[in-house]
């Protein structure tokens, strides 16, 4: 039995036993190479799940959908390591309880094969070492190094060009599992803290606010980068912020669910006298 069939029947079993109220997985998409999120509430619906190398989205973003977990009932979710990583971060930030999610874990190998990951509870997955050793694809590192080699003025020009494309659709935020604020600071409008205008300055404000709020919290799932309809290389922002946090605090987000959020915790023997 292939992994797709195996996971279909596991999802169906979880639903029919009543262990979970819902399983979030993938279904066929609008074209042959697309997959879309699929929500199954019955064992029959679970038969529609598709699991193959095209299932790249990070479905953990739905776990904090308003009202989903408020009744205390569990949900099942198909996650690959980056999704497991984001669940670790969500738990460490007290947004989820470990017992609320049943994970149907899988990994995509060589871009084509799908392998099952052992375990069902978040504590079953030890992804820490893997995450520490994770390197982005060569083209990302290359692009990042090119930007790092620029002068401050050149770098500013580069990002000005890129951010001027932004249309403030907030797709990057909406697909991001870490952007769970019920009211994002850019939506707080009494008063309007961050301008809603999508001119270059407003776009800078928005993209920098988001970059800072994701520092030390990003799961590197790439969802924002893929979602951006105007192709701003958000991966480069995420990569750089991750690198910054790692070199300053030796911290890699989402290694496990017991981590203390790096920018939201402090040590009494902290050598810094000033806490932001």
């Amino acid at each position: 039995m292939g992994i797709q069939e195996q996971y279909r029947s596991e999802a169906a079993a979880l639903l029919s036993s009543g262990e979970v109220k819902l399983v979030i997985g993938f279904g066929a998409g609008s074209t042959a190479d697309r997959r879309r999120p699929l929500f199954a509430r019955t064992p029959e619906e679970a038969q529609k799940f598709v699991l193959d190398a095209a299932c790249i989205a990070n479905l953990s973003t739905y776990l904090l959908a308003e009202g989903l977990l408020s009744d205390g009932k569990k949900v099942g979710v198909f996650l690959k390591p980056d999704g497991i990583r984001s669940v670790n971060i969500l738990i460490s930030e007290a947004q989820l309880k470990p017992e609320q999610v049943v994970i149907l874990g899988y990994a995509i190998e060589n871009g084509k094969d799908v392998a099952a990951l052992e375990g069902r509870n978040i504590s079953d997955f030890s992804i820490g070492e893997k995450i520490r050793n994770l390197t982005p694809p060569p083209h990302v590192i290359e692009a990042a190094e090119k930007i790092e080699a620029m002068s401050a003025e050149e770098r500013f020009e580069y990002w000005k060009e890129e951010f001027s494309k932004c249309i403030k659709c907030y797709a990057c935020r909406q697909v991001c599992p870490m952007c769970y604020c019920r009211r994002c600071i850019v939506d707080v409008n009494q008063p309007q803290w961050v301008s809603t205008s999508s001119h270059t300055l407003g776009n800078f404000e928005w993209n920098l606010v988001r970059a800072f709020h994701l520092a030390g919290r990003c799961a590197s799932c790439g969802a924002c980068d893929r979602a951006c309809p105007v192709n701003i290389p958000l991966r480069l922002v995420n990569y750089r912020m991750g690198k910054e946090v790692r070199s300053a605090f030796d911290y890699v987000a989402g290694e496990n669910s017991d981590q203390k959020p790096v920018l939201a915790s402090f040590k009494q023997d902290d050598p810094e006298t000033f806490i932001l």
């Binding site: 999120p37 739905y62 249309i167 659709c169 907030y170 909406q174 697909v175 979602a227």
Partner: peptide, 13 residues
């Protein structure tokens, strides 16, 4: 509408 994440991408494009 279950899976719609509520971005503005479809309206703005």
């Amino acid at each position: 509408a279950l899976r719609c994440v509520g971005c503005g991408s479809c309206t703005f494009l």
